[in-house]
Computed example of a mutant assay.
Amino acid sequence: MTPPHAAQSTDTRTDTHLLLPLPLPDTVFVLVHGAWHGSWQWAATQRALAGLGAASVAVDLPGHGFGAPLPSGYLLPGRPGLPTERSQLADLTMDDCADAVLDTLRRVRRYGRVVLVAHSAGGGPASLAAERAPHLVDRLVYVSAFVPAARPRFSDYLSAPENSTARGQDLPLGDPGALGAVRINPLSPDPAYVEELWQTHYHDTPADRFDRWRSALSPDLPLSVPTTPLTLTAARWGRVPRTFLRCADDRALPIATQNLMITEADRAQPHEPFTVHTLPGSHTPFAARPEELAEALVR
């Protein structure tokens, strides 16, 4: 399938020179997942990081991971009530999610340098955690992730013209406002729905491996994650060095949207601009190319 037009970015930014990866015995990577995923998504990347001499710990945000509460009919034939049953995650807040990140940051700080890595919607909780406790973070890394430095809500970027080529708009079920969550159906028996989920998030992951990945996804993203406005300050979040890892053929968050977030963040917080690197492939490099992602993180 031809990549979306946004992947053919006119951005003339030159990627920062990448050094060969070296062991990082005094550095811990704290990994924050995106929507519908969990700490498990990082397992292959963590193995690759360990092979490069880097320690890491992955966070389960509230309402995600294998302990996430599910809609009552989710595992029943036909998934009764899935489009209408209010989510058990509806009352979770962005502060709850940031607290989970902060708890891990406090635990690992004793071991040395801390690099906080966020993917996709995880950029909100990670950013808020860094704003609240910048002394716990030595570098922020956004992997095709939301950066709220200029526009306060993830949904502000999802509705931007630069994001018009994004796929997956038909994946959410029901009314997110009534559900209290952005709900998808990873176990859908509809081949067209499954194809769209694959092409949106995992198109460069082999189909058989994607089937295993989608079976582990959680159906609900708390609505607070994409809709809560965040305020980042120059004195706190803005003082933390930051890197953006762009995904060149991202169909869920096109590279034009990624570039928009980078540009607006640098304009809003010019004293600590992004270092930018680019990875090939989809929105989910941890599934398609975890070794390359690990190498990019330690460079």
Rank of each mutant, 00 (worst) to 15 (best):
T2K: 07
A7S: 12
S9Q: 11
D11A: 06
D15Y: 01
D15L: 07
H17K: 04
L19Q: 04
L22M: 09
L22H: 11
P23C: 03
L24D: 15
D26R: 05
V32N: 08
A35P: 04
H37C: 05
G53F: 00
V57S: 14
V57W: 00
A58P: 01
V59A: 02
A68Y: 05
L70R: 11
G73V: 11
L76R: 12
L82Q: 06
D91H: 07
T93H: 04
D96I: 09
L105V: 04
R106V: 11
V108H: 03
R110C: 08
R113V: 08
V117A: 12
A130C: 07
A130F: 04
H135V: 06
D138N: 07
D138C: 03
R139H: 12
R139S: 04
R139E: 04
F146S: 06
A150W: 08
R151C: 00
T165V: 11
G168C: 07
D170I: 14
P172R: 12
P176G: 14
I184V: 12
S188E: 13
E195G: 11
H201L: 05
Y202V: 01
D204A: 15
T205H: 12
F210K: 04
R214W: 02
S215V: 15
L221W: 11
T231M: 01
T233A: 07
W237H: 05
R242H: 14
L245I: 06
C247M: 11
D250L: 10
A256H: 07
T257K: 14
M261S: 14
Q269S: 03
Q269Y: 00
P273N: 15
T284V: 03
F286K: 07
F286H: 13
R289P: 13
L297G: 08
R299C: 09
